[in-house]
Amino acid sequence: MPQLEFWHFLPQFFWLAVCFVFLYVIMAFVALPRIGRVLTDRKHRIEQDLDGAERARADAERARLDYEDSLEEARDRARSIIGAAIQQAGEEGERRLEELDREIGRELEDAQRAIDEARTTALANLEGVAVEAARLATRRLTGAEASDEDALKALAAVREN
């Protein structure tokens, strides 16, 4: 095995040490800090961007909720106005109906009273006519003069039956 020839052990080890130490120094003080910085920079940047996106999303969400709230509010208001109008209109109608009712009732009463009056006067007239007719009939039949009282009495007796 050529790897076990002793003569090259020392020179190989020496150059291995040189290369390794050199590489370590470059890595530790130049390359790795730079890569690490690039990585953390990017991580922060992505984090920031994501935060921004999140914030924008939250804003949009809030705006949407606000919009929905105001929409709902407007709808509520419209509904209450319509309800109030309907109620108002109903009350008005009812009041008018009652008024009319009352008016009609009053007119009805007036009419009734007029009719009653007319009937009593008519009845009173009728009595007068009947008394007159009874006296006339009495005179013609008997030739006697009947007094009003008698005629009235007779009339009442007739009406009894």
């Binding site: 090259h8 020392l10 020179p11 150059w15 590489l23």
Partner: peptide
């Protein structure tokens, strides 16, 4: 004896490539 052997040359090549790769 610290002769630069073919092995040492390839070590240096690897070292150089790692440095190039990472920088």
């Amino acid at each position: 004896d610290l002769a630069i052997t073919n092995s040492a040359i390839w070590m240096m090549a690897a070292t150089a490539l790692v440095i190039i790769f990472t920088t």
